[in-house]
């Protein structure tokens, strides 16, 4: 059992939990993820580690309430327990000799972007960041990203905050102006990572994306999270979740993410009925930003 020490609402339907998990906190590195299961009968879902504190033995996760499990998770409060919390999983990211990196986070993707930029910032790397959301109130972790960035751009799809438009608009501008980066990190909905990678490709700048396919065990055992990278099958849980964005077959990933669309709907409807939810429309709207 793993205790929720702190709960914060970052935006409507986006929540942050600080979880007591000393062993995971001790080994966690940027780029890694956890798998959790709320209770017996629950599903195992992967969530990227948004922050960790080895000394205090805590791991921070950020999630958006898009399906039954994340909605149910959102009903838990500080002091409550999660049955299973497994990690740190996946391969940590490394940036050995980088001088300047651009980090792009869209929607919930800002959360997994944060530990990577934080590490780069601590290594003395120049960090430029572009973060964006559908609308101002959905923008998360702005302060945190700001403190680890030398320069930050904010975008919203509806123009309610910062630049009006997608994060990729700013990305394009920076590259067209001739700004150079050793690497570009793009994390967000698959479509954003796809388009972003397409933009950076002609410039030949290494582009890292972090994939979040459907997983079960997270240890390589089931192969459900397989993605095609450079024409080869990779398991995101043990080979990733970070991959070269120029080599990922995003169209396949997007299709595979929809495998259980009908079942997810059934599950959510039953949950909402049981919990007398009046927010269904809002949640479905939020779905567009969801990584998962």
């Amino acid at each position: 059992m793993f205790k929720i020490l702190e709960k914060r609402e970052l935006a409507p339907s986006i929540k942050l939990f600080v979880i007591e998990a000393p062993l995971v906190a001790k080994k966690a590195k940027p780029g890694q993820f956890v798998i959790l299961r709320i209770k017996e009968g629950g599903e195992r879902i992967p969530l990227t580690i948004a922050d960790y504190d080895a000394q205090n033995g805590t791991v921070t996760i950020v999630f958006q309430e898009v399906g039954k499990t994340t909605r149910e998770l959102g009903t838990l409060e500080a002091g409550d327990y999660i049955e299973d919390f497994v990690g740190p999983l996946g391969v940590p990211v490394e940036f050995p000799n980088h001088k300047k990196v651009l980090g792009i986070g869209g929607g919930l993707g800002i959360a997994p972007l944060y530990p990577k930029l934080k590490m780069l910032h601590q290594q003395g790397v120049e960090v430029v960041s572009i973060i964006g959301a559908r609308t101002a109130e959905m923008l998360i972790l702005e302060e945190e990203i700001k403190t680890v960035s030398n320069r930050m751009y904010v975008c919203t799809d509806d123009g309610s905050k910062g630049r009006h438009g997608f994060v990729t608009v700013v990305l394009k501008e920076l590259l067209e102006q001739g700004e150079k980066f050793d690497e570009i990190i793009i994390i967000g909905p698959p479509i954003l990572m796809k388009i972003g990678s397409e933009i950076t490709k002609p410039y030949g700048i290494p582009t890292m994306v972090s994939l979040n396919p459907i997983m079960v065990d997270g240890t390589g055992m089931c192969g459900g999270c397989r993605v095609t990278v450079d024409g080869e099958i990779k398991f995101a849980c043990v080979d990733g979740p970070a991959f070269d964005g120029h080599k990922v077959d995003f169209d396949e990933l997007i299709k595979r993410l929809a495998t259980y669309k009908e079942e997810e709907k059934i599950s959510l409807e039953i949950f909402n009925k049981a919990h007398g939810c009046k927010l269904i429309n809002k949640i479905e709207g939020a779905d567009k930003d969801a990584v998962k």
């Binding site: 009968g41 629950g42 599903e43 195992r44 039954k68 499990t69 079960v216 495998t259 259980y260 079942e263 997810e264 059934i266 599950s267 039953i270």
Partner: peptide, 14 residues
């Protein structure tokens, strides 16, 4: 994950 009990359990299968 007991997908045979879905939606009483949360893990689906097709």
């Amino acid at each position: 994950m007991k997908a045979y009990s879905f939606p009483n359990t949360d893990t689906p299968i097709k």
